[in-house]
Simulated scan of single mutants.
Amino acid sequence: MYFVIVAVICVLITVFNLFLLLGVTKRLRDQSKQLAHLMSNAPMPESMIAVGSRPGVFSARTVDGEQVTEAMFTSGGLVGFFSPTCPACAEWLPRFVDSAAALPGGRGEALAVVVAETAAEGADLVADLRGVAMVVVEQAGGPLVTNFEVKGYPAVGRFSADGVLVSNEPPTALAVPAVA
C-alpha cells in the first residue's frame, strides 16, 4: 500500500516537473527571439574613426624601420588593426591580405597595426602581413590606436584618393575591386 502511494507521488512530481520544464523552455525560446530581434535592429558601434573623417596626426616606425604618418593616406589606401588575442582577427586577416595585395600602389598603400603587449606576441601576425603592408606593432593605447579611435578588433578602414575614410566595416573595406 505504501509503495503505491509513494509511486503515485513520484509520478505526480515528475509530471509537474515536466510541465515546469516545458514552460521554461518556451520562455527561453521567446526571449531568444526577442533578443535576436533587438540585436538585428541595433546599430553596430563603429570600430574606428567615422566614415568621412581623417585620422589624427601620428608618426610611427614599422617593423622594417619605415616611418609612417597620417600623410600616407592622402592618396587613399587601406588600414587594419589586428590583435593576436582576437578570434575574429584570424577570420579577417586573409581577406585583409588579399585586399592589400590588390592595391595598385602595393604595400605602400596598406598599413597593418598589430596591437600586442610584446613584439613576440604579435610575431605570427607580423609574418602574415609583412609582405603586403607596412606593419607597426604597438600596445593598446598607442599613437595609431588613439588617432584612429580604435574600439575593437579587427578594425579595418579604406581611404579615398583624397585621404577621407570611406568605409570602416570589414566587408566593404576589404572588398577587392574587380579587374576590368
Rank of each mutant, 00 (worst) to 15 (best):
F3R: 15
V4E: 15
I5D: 12
V6S: 06
L12E: 08
I13N: 08
I13T: 13
L22F: 13
V24M: 14
V24P: 00
Q34E: 15
Q34T: 13
L38S: 09
M39E: 10
S40A: 14
S40C: 01
A42R: 10
M44D: 10
P45G: 12
E46G: 02
E46T: 05
S47K: 14
I49C: 09
I49S: 00
A50P: 05
P55K: 00
S59K: 15
R61Y: 10
V63E: 04
D64T: 15
D64M: 11
G65E: 07
G65W: 05
V68R: 02
V68M: 06
V68E: 02
T69L: 07
F73E: 11
T74W: 05
G77W: 06
G80M: 01
F82W: 08
P84A: 02
T85F: 05
P87F: 00
A90Y: 09
E91W: 13
P94F: 00
V97T: 10
S99D: 00
S99F: 06
A102P: 05
P104V: 07
G105H: 09
G106M: 09
G106N: 08
E109M: 13
V113T: 06
V113F: 02
V115H: 02
T118H: 07
A119I: 03
A120F: 07
G122M: 02
D124E: 15
D124N: 13
D124G: 10
M134C: 02
V135Q: 04
V135G: 07
V135A: 01
V137Q: 10
V137N: 06
Q139S: 15
A140V: 11
V145M: 03
V145C: 01
V150E: 07
K151V: 13
G152W: 12
R158G: 04
R158C: 03
L165F: 01
P170N: 04
A173S: 14
A175T: 14
A178T: 15
V179N: 08
V179Q: 12
A180L: 12
